[in-house]
Design a protein around this nucleic acid. Sequence first.
DNA 1: CTTCTGACA
DNA 2: TGTCAGTA
Length: 123
Amino acid sequence: MRIGELERLTGVPRRLLRYYEEQGLLHPERDSSGYRVYTGEQVALVGRIRELLAAGLNTETIRGLLPCAPDAEPGFIPCSRSLEPLNANLMEMDAQIAALVHRRERLAGLKDATEARLERQRA
DNA sequence: CTTCTGACA
DNA sequence: TGTCAGTA
């Protein structure tokens, strides 16, 4: 099938399908006209990609995990080797959370100081 | 009519 | 991610 049908089957806009390919997540064949040709497995693969993306994994991590049973049932990755990248991504997320908490504190401090000052001027 | 690549009032 | 352009 070509990109139009995959789009209908997965509900994923073709613009995104091409983006996934650009990120090395999908590797469709090309017909004599240069059109992308997808197989039935690709349909399930797109579903798996969406699942992993929704879990917060970046395309780089997903790229490494996909070759591991891309047709397996969703909910887990059936490869022990995928544990390392998964943990690395988890740590990256922890770092982002810490950075966000820090930013939140600064913004909260700025807001409190602003409120206090406004209160003083009013008095 | 469908898809492709590259680009952004 | 949308979308417009100019093709194949």
